[in-house]
Structure formats: C-alpha cells, structure tokens
Design a protein around this nucleic acid. Structure first.
Length: 498
RNA sequence: CGGGGAGUAGCUCAGCCCGGUAGAGCGCCACGUUUGGGACGUGGAAGUCGGAGGUUCAAGUCCUCUCUCCCCGACCA
C-alpha cells in the first residue's frame, strides 16, 4: 500500500521534454524547469495558474516556516473576506490611484446587479482598517498584530508563472500602533524576519533596503524591500514591509484614547510575501538539469532508487533494503520516497528526480547491500559518494544541511560577484545588463525615469547593512550622481527587475 | 495596453502558401526480454485540428471575429 509520501512526484504521466540552457534563453529555461518539476498547470483564465501538488507543497513549506516566525513575534492569524466594497478602496487617494487599474470588480450577485460593486481584494488594508476602527478604543488595545494567509487578485497585463499572476497566494500582515516610531520600528522588525527567512529557509541571499519614494506602496510613508538577484542578474522584489504612518488610520477614522485621556491617531504597518518567492527560489538555485530545491522546502528530500539484481532473490533483497532505508530516514523526520516504479530503468529515475529538484538521491543495489552502504548523489554539486548504512540517518541529515548551506553560499557569492560599484552612465548601463550597479543617485525622480528609459535599470533600494538583529542604512558617500552628475549624498542599488 | 511569435494526440511538432481519407517522434496501455545515468521487441489505444461565424459540393488549410500561451516594451508589486 502506498502512503502519501510514496505518491509525491510519482505521477503516472510526466513531462520529460528538453530544458533549454540558462545561457541560451533564460526565460525559456525558467518555463522549462517549471514544467519539468511539475509545479503549475495552465488555468482556463488568463493570468491564473493551477498549483500542482509539487508547487503547492513548496508553498506549504514556506507557510509553515514563515508562520512560526510571525507567531514568535506575537502575531495572530485571522481572516478577512475576499470581497471589499468599492467605496472602501476609494477612501484613500493614493491607494485608489495605485490599485484601480488592476482591480477585478464583481457587479452582479444572485442574478441581480449589485447596488455597490465589490472588488476582489488586491490587498486588505481597507477592509482591515474599517474593522480596526471597531476594535481599537484604548491604548491597551495596542499594538494589534494580525496576519492572514489568503489569495488576492491583481489584473496583471503580462502574467508570468509565480512572478506575476492575476491571482496569487500570500500572507499579509497588518499591525496597529500607538506611535509613528513604534510603527516604523515594527516595519523594520518584520523586514528582519523576512530577511532571515529568505536566508535561512530559502537561501536566496537578498539585499535589504528602503525603496525610494516613487517606488513605495500606495499610501505608505516608507517601504522596505528585499531584492535577491536571479541568475540572469535581474532583481526580484520579494517580501516588502510598509510603514503606513497614519494614512489608513486617518482614512478610516481610527483613534484610541491614551493614558492622557486624549484621542490619538493610530499608526500602521503592512507586509506581504507571496508565491512569487517560489519563482525566486527557482531562478536562484535552478540549473540546466532542472529545478534545485533547498532541503527545507523540497517536496521530497531524499529519493531512494533501488537497482534491481540479476535474479528475483537479489531484487527482492534490494526492495526490502530500500523499504527499510526509507523507514529509518522517515523516522528521523525526513521526507523520503522509494521510487519502485516497475519497468523503468534506474537511469531514467535518476533523471526524473534531478529534474524536479530533489536534493539527495540514494541508490541501493546488490553491490551496496553486500558492502553495507548506499550511493548518495547530491543534486547541488552532482557529487556521488558511498555512505555506510550504519548511521545513515545522521549522515543523510548532515548532507542535507550541507546542501542547504552550499546553495545559500552560492547564491551569496554569485550576487557579490555581480554587484559592481560604478560612477558613470556607461558603467550603470553596462553593469545593469549582468547584475547590480552600486552607484550614487541624486534622488530625483526625473533622473530615475531617464535612467530607466535609457538603461532599463531601476532604483531597487537604498541598501541596508545588518548589525546584529537590526538593519541600518549604509554610511553616506557624497559625490556626483552616477547618472546625471548632480549632487548625491548616498549610494543606491540599481538593477533590472522582474 | 503597443509590437512580435504561436495554438493540430499527453508532449514536441509536420501538414496550411496551392481546400479533397488526420500524420511523425516521444510518451501512454498490454505482453515479453531488460535494469549501477534517459532500454528494446511485438501488438494496441489515443485528436469535434483553441472557440464562434462565414465562403465552398467540400475547410486543419481561405476570410472575419474571439479566447489563450510565449517574447520585447509600457504599467505594477
């Protein structure tokens, strides 16, 4: 009898088409590895994607890890409705302007035209703050720290699997605070949570920083962003934390009574991380053989491939050994599957598990049983080595740890190697094609627009550096703007983005 | 939303210019031989040609509209 772990990734029909190398066509490669790993399928509606079991598992892994981190900071989960009255969205001017073009609107229900159209939430600040108005009375009600795991919809003009989809899954955190300072501090605190998560769980090595004003979330007074570098040198904004000031508190007339007996405005943060992050994992870790998943999120961490013997007896012995091995590793808390599909040669199975990014493959055949070992093949390095069966669980666990660490280090090294300090127009234009440009910027919006028009590079952020458990802006470095030559006080990160 | 490319079997595609019986490879199913890096033989199943309308004795092929996917850009996070 098969248990669920045995069925993961062993669909009866598979995609084993070719994978275009990254260097040949990065966009095509991205689609190829998504197909190879069977992460999504096409949906009948434009821009919407079906998350297949493998793709959804990655998301569940992300949820599990991230949710625990939020809860350690005292955040509680809640759930607000999918549909929001149109008038709510209209209450905050910048917010409307930012989201109006990408709203999906429900105009009919129960066979009749609705009196007021409902929007499918693009984000939930408005409905949440309309509710906070009822929940917040006293300074004793603050801070209020909520999060919800849900779907949102933004009518995207140019969809791409995971990176930009009309409907996507995410978490959105919403907090309310008594002072502007507290709200700012919480936004930064969450920025650190995201950063640590991307490093420790996904190993995708982001640059942390603050967005320039023209790149802020509609309605925010500050937006903090994480910008990991993909293997083609482009940036993927992943996980933003917003200091919303009292924008939404004012728009929804939320106040609290302080210890002084007076009425005070309420300050807000919001922060979100979405299924887009999965696209980041793929584009940071994948290689020309297929997807490569860090052990933390891989649907299957260890794939055991039995190699049949020359006769029935030895083949049965191999099967038994494979099952025992699986049991040992499962007991140690690992996600393990035995690929016992009949009529398929071992080589085809190796190929299969490689394409879908399984971190470690264990081969066990008659020769191994005789030697009391298995052959282990690492997905990240391709390295193949014999591992004794005694103490196998410990050895496998430490190999998985090594893979996790290696992926993280590789991503880090790649980003460092492709970040260039430049001080000229030509330097920016040139480096932005292969990675990040670290350059001075005058902080004029017109200059940024010109830079984008001429070089396709955008201001990703004012970078931070980490001191212990908090971020601080990097030191100022006054000089001429790398693009227009006007005075600049500090350096920014410039890159092409997804 | 502007520009370009494409939708034919599960996948990759040929057939369209020049209308006349729906094709190939891989995959899938059955049986057998195989099995340490994508196995082979024999037999078999499988497509209202993205959808709607039109022209025609006859449309995968010609015309019109439409939907979807991919790429480059604009917008956005």
């Amino acid at each position: 009898m098969l248990d669920s772990a045995d069925q993961i990734g062993q669909e009866r029909t598979t995609n084993d088409g070719p994978i275009i190398p990254r260097a040949t066509d990065f966009a095509q490669w991205y689609q190829d590895i998504i197909a190879a790993a069977e992460l999504v399928d096409q949906a009948p509606v434009r821009g919407c994607y079906i998350l297949r079991p493998n793709g959804y598992f990655i998301w569940e892994s992300i949820q599990r890890d991230l949710d625990a981190r939020f809860k350690q900071h005292g955040v509680q989960n809640a759930y607000f409705p999918l549909l929001i009255p149109m008038s709510f969205i209209m209450k905050e001017a910048e917010h409307v302007e930012g989201f109006a073009p990408e709203l999906a609107v429900v105009t009919h229900g129960g066979g009749e035209a609705l009196e007021e159209p409902l929007v499918v939430r693009p984000t939930s600040e408005t409905v949440i703050w309309s509710t906070f108005r009822k929940w917040i009375r006293s300074h004793r009600d603050l801070p209020l720290l909520l999060n919800q795991w849900c779907n949102v919809m933004r009518w995207e003009k140019r969809p791409r699997a995971f990176l930009r989809t009309a409907e996507f899954l995410w978490q959105e955190g919403h907090t309310a605070h008594a002072t502007a300072e507290e709200a700012r501090q919480y936004a930064l605190e969450n920025h650190v949570i995201y950063y640590d998560f991307l490093e420790e769980c996904l190993g995708i090595g982001p640059i942390a920083g603050e967005k320039p004003p023209h790149e802020r979330f509609p309605g925010a007074v500050a937006t903090f962003t994480l910008e990991p570098m993909m293997q083609d040198g482009r940036a993927l904004q992943t996980g933003t934390s917003h200091d919303l000031g009292d924008t939404f508190g004012r728009a929804f007339d939320v106040t609290y009574q302080g210890e002084d007996g007076q009425s005070h405005p309420v300050f807000a943060t919001s922060w979100g991380m979405s299924t887009r992050t999965i696209g980041g994992v793929l584009m940071v870790h994948g290689d020309d053989r297929g997807a490569v998943f860090p052990p933390t999120v891989a649907p299957v961490q260890v794939a055991i491939v039995p190699v049949p013997g020359r006769d029935d007896a030895s083949t049965r012995a191999v099967e038994t050994a494979a099952t025992d091995l699986k049991q040992t590793l499962t007991k140690a808390g690992l996600r393990v599957t035995v690929d016992s599909r009949p009529g398929m040669r071992p080589g085809a199975k190796f190929f299969h598990w490689e394409r879908r990014g399984t971190p470690l493959r264990l081969e066990i055949g008659p020769r191994d049983i005789e030697a009391g070992q298995v052959m282990a093949a690492r997905r990240d390095t391709g390295e193949k080595m014999a591992v004794p069966l005694s103490g196998i669980a410990t050895a496998v666990q430490s190999t998985l740890d090594a893979i996790q660490m290696n992926l993280r280090m590789q991503a880090h090294a790649r980003r460092e190697a492709r970040t260039y300090t430049v001080d000229t127009r030509a330097g920016i234009a040139e480096t932005v094609l292969k990675g990040y440009a670290f350059t001075r910027w005058c902080e004029s919006r017109e200059c940024a627009a010109d830079m984008q028009a001429q070089s396709r590079g955008t201001i990703r952020c004012f970078p931070f550096e980490k001191h212990g458990n908090e971020f601080r802006p990097i030191p100022n470095d006054p000089g001429p703007c790398g693009w227009c030559g006007n005075h600049a006080t500090r350096r920014v990160l410039v890159g092409r983005s997804y």
